[in-house]
């Protein structure tokens, strides 16, 4: 365009687009060709941003508390200031007690699970959800500093939650079982039929690689088989919700997870690697 300065940003936009695209393609290629192990860039970026997430979680908690306190104080100004203050205070205390009781119940359940299972575990709190709606991940507040490493199983009193995919020094990223990339070896508790459950990205799981002769029914409990080398054997995955047949073979087997992934607050990370049946390589 005549009269436009040579260094006008608008003239360089096309070049910038090409440069950014090439840069991203190179970045993606580097990861795709070296899929074994976690990329250093991912670990470093995650470590830094996890600290921000920790801060956001703390700030949100603080703001929530400040907001409740402000609303409660506003109510007390209406008629009898002293009496209402006392009532509000008691209400707040009651809510706090309820929250503490609820938290204690959850921790007790975790403790029960911790003592019940034969594997070594460590408790952790969920501090954030996934940053992209296309992936089902959460961030927990413990990482490599608490001996947590990649591919360690994460469980809750309700059942299997997922596995650790990235461990920064003070936080870890956990891939939930419902993520599209997640999978776990399973068996049906009643008939001992084997298969693999895979995430669908939604709130249900699909069971695959099941022999056509296997005995499956709606309502059957699905537990981990331990053959994947990540999840210890015998932990609850969920229940079979529906089974469809396609001739001799199974068409689709839908499993409803036992864990409510939308209300996870505390989890246990399994620190010991499960012994894979039939693996005599060591």
């Amino acid at each position: 365009m005549p009269g436009m300065p040579l260094l006008d940003i608008r003239q360089r936009t096309g070049y910038l687009f090409v440069a950014l695209t090439i840069g991203h393609v190179i970045l993606i290629s580097a990861q795709v060709t070296t899929q074994r192990g976690v990329p250093l860039l991912e670990t470093a970026t995650f470590g830094v941003v996890a600290e921000v997430q920790r801060g956001v979680a703390a700030l949100a908690g603080g703001l929530s508390g400040a907001w409740d306190g402000y609303v409660a104080l506003q109510d007390t100004r209406a008629e009898n200031v002293a009496l209402r203050e006392e009532v509000a205070q008691l209400q707040v205390e009651l809510q706090e007690e309820r929250a503490v009781a609820g938290q204690s119940r959850q921790l007790q359940e975790l403790l029960d699970l911790q003592t019940r299972v034969s594997v070594t575990t460590t408790g952790a709190s969920v501090i954030a959800g996934g940053a992209s709606p296309d992936f089902r991940t959460i961030t927990i507040d413990k990482g490599a500093g608490a001996a947590i490493g990649q591919d360690m199983a994460v469980i809750s009193p309700s059942g299997v939650v997922g596995r650790v995919v990235t461990a920064a020094p003070r936080a870890s990223k956990v891939q939930l079982l419902i993520d599209r990339n997640a999978a776990a070896g399973v068996i049906i508790e009643r008939s001992r039929a084997q298969g693999v459950v895979v995430g669908s990205g939604g709130d249900l799981l699909a069971m695959e690689y099941v022999a056509g002769s296997a005995d499956l029914r709606e309502g059957d409990l699905v537990v981990t088989s331990g053959i994947d080398g990540i999840y210890p054997k015998g932990f609850l995955i969920g229940r079979i919700e529906s089974v469809t047949r396609n001739g001799q073979d199974y068409g689709s087997i839908v499993v409803r997870p036992s864990v409510d992934f939308s209300s996870l607050e505390s989890v246990l990370v399994v620190l010991t690697r499960p012994v894979v049946p039939g693996d005599d390589s060591e």
């Binding site: 687009f17 991203h24 995650f46 940053a131 992209s132």
Partner: peptide, 30 residues
């Protein structure tokens, strides 16, 4: 603000979002 600023914003924000997800870094950024 136009395509230049949006590209850089999308690129940087996408990289952070990718790093916080379990996917390949660069996909969301691209």
């Amino acid at each position: 603000a136009g395509p230049g600023a949006a590209m850089v914003t999308g690129s940087l924000a996408g990289l952070v979002q990718d790093a916080l997800s379990s996917g390949v870094i660069g996909m969301g950024a691209l």
